[in-house]
Nucleic acid binder design. Structure first.
Lengths: 142, 142
DNA sequence: ATTTGTCATGTTATAAGGTTACATATTGTG
DNA sequence: CACAATATGTAACCTTATAACATGACAAAT
């Protein structure tokens, strides 16, 4: 029998969540919530909230990251990765490509900074904007 | 007679710039561009653009920082500080207080991460969200 | 099988953040 | 003075995000 309504396809995700996840997985650069919305209109998604709610959940599950300096979202590339503690992102301003880096020394350094102040961090944002290797090469040709 | 138009008061700043700088300097927590606008209406500032233009310049001068995870702005606390390269921020979600930290080990680690990828960074965002020391103490009482 | 609780959905309207385009004024410099 | 460069003012607009409220789907317990 057909599982009506909530068809998940990706374990445990609801329809809207898997639509949003699919859009992000298929993208080569971060997508804004509204870009996702536009892309999913023909699949029946009509309102910003449907996208934002799905994004909230996906971020909570660690399947998607929000890039604060871009107000946009990317699918997590660390397949089944569990260590979602502290991730740094490099974001190419030319081609939009994003790389995720987890680095224990960086994590340690951030913890140290917090500790020195008696600050209890619950979330961290580390984003580097600039040019990726490929785009630097392309630029130097021009 | 009143100095019409560009009175700077803080070296080299135009009227709008020093109004915005004043608003941020007097605040104990980050202000959004629109909060600044509201606060400066009686001083004759009417449109968002006037605030954004001033903010752009102040950020460029290193007198103000933008907090990406908050879409808000703070006055730089490092008085005449020249080393505006890489700054980390701790942001208390309870009281709004922000601390600026410059740490050469952190800077080194970020450079290392970029170098490994051949990434050329032009701008960095490092923000820790959580509870400051005081607010932790207050919370543990409740 | 209805109740009840919980979570996801759908929709409208609106708040908050930020930019484009264009006209005007100021000011410093040759 | 004249001119370029920079700062200003204003309106309209676009993008990003949330509030408020009603509905639907399903599980577990009666």
């Amino acid at each position: 029998m057909a599982t009506h309504s909530h068809d998940t396809s990706l374990a445990g995700l609801t329809r809207n969540q898997s639509l949003v996840m699919g859009a992000l997985s298929g993208a080569s650069a971060p997508l804004s919530a509204y870009a996702i919305l536009d892309q999913l209109r023909e699949a029946g998604v009509r309102a910003p909230l449907q996208v934002y709610r799905a994004l909230d959940k996906l971020v909570e599950l660690g399947l998607v990251h929000r890039l604060e300096s871009l107000n946009a979202f990317v699918a997590c590339r660390h397949a089944g990765c569990e260590t979602h503690d502290i991730t740094a992102f490099t974001i190419c301003e030319q081609c939009g490509k994003v790389a995720e880096v987890t680095d224990s020394k960086l994590a340690g350094q951030l913890e140290e900074i917090a500790r020195r102040q008696g600050f209890r961090a619950t979330k961290s944002t580390v984003e580097l904007r600039g040019l990726c290797k490929q785009c630097q090469a392309a630029a130097s040709v021009a």
